[in-house]
Design a protein around this nucleic acid. Structure first.
Lengths: 112, 112
DNA sequence: AAATATACATAATTTTCTTATGCATAAAAA
DNA sequence: TTTTTATGCATAAGAAAATTATGTATATTT
């Protein structure tokens, strides 16, 4: 409870950013990576993650490579060419938003 | 189109922050102030603003003072005592989120 | 006279989460 | 050895918070 720190709209960008850095990742790995990178502050829930991955795939930004590890199934996601382009856009947009918001709530510590 | 830069979940905090700085404001004034402060980058739509104000009021964080200016109605909003407390919390949460997100998407320019 | 700005509001719809649930294998702990 | 936790996928119901589209009305500018 009380862990909705993940502002709506940022999940797609986070996924794209991670895939841009790590070449290929599977869902569970993404949740762990985010937890690790944010020291537990951001927790991606499965109910948010998987639909987001499916949407990004449907939009042609990701594609899947299924792998069998041991006896278990893994779906590795990679950026498509278009996905790489969109990552640049989304990251720029996110930076802009962060800067704007930072300026709005705390003008003294602007990022500029 | 393409102007959904306002990440969902940040509107309440923005409203509270502005009221904390300006003592009393009315709806239209808030939309203009945000536009001004962000140089047109964030545009608060009325369909988002008014329901948000009503919710904050219902939650006891704001109260209203109706004023008649010329022949027109204005509803000035002010922070309640509880609203002031919540503003502190929400701003801290926002700072935390911005820092985390900044760190996530661009570790090199961390705010710390 | 017409268009734009000021000022409020709500309804329908969409997006994007949370929470709950389900299935299944692997590893660790009791 | 049994139970819990971790790994790994997925979807459905519901809630939250926007967007978009309207609606009403006055004031100002073109």
């Amino acid at each position: 409870m009380g862990n909705q720190k993940l502002f709506k709209g940022s999940l797609q960008t986070i996924i794209l950013k991670l895939l841009n850095e790590n070449d290929k990742m599977y869902g569970y790995e993404i949740t762990q990576k985010v937890k690790e990178l944010t020291k537990g502050e951001l927790k991606i829930t499965e109910g948010a993650l998987y639909p987001a991955l499916h949407k990004l795939e449907a939009d042609g930004l990701l594609y899947v490579e299924v792998a069998k590890v041991g006896n278990r199934l893994r779906k590795y996601y990679k950026l498509t060419e278009n996905g790489t382009k969109e990552t640049v856009n989304k990251l720029a947009e996110m930076q802009e938003f962060l800067k704007t918001m930072q300026h709005l709530v705390n003008p003294k510590f602007s990022l500029e």
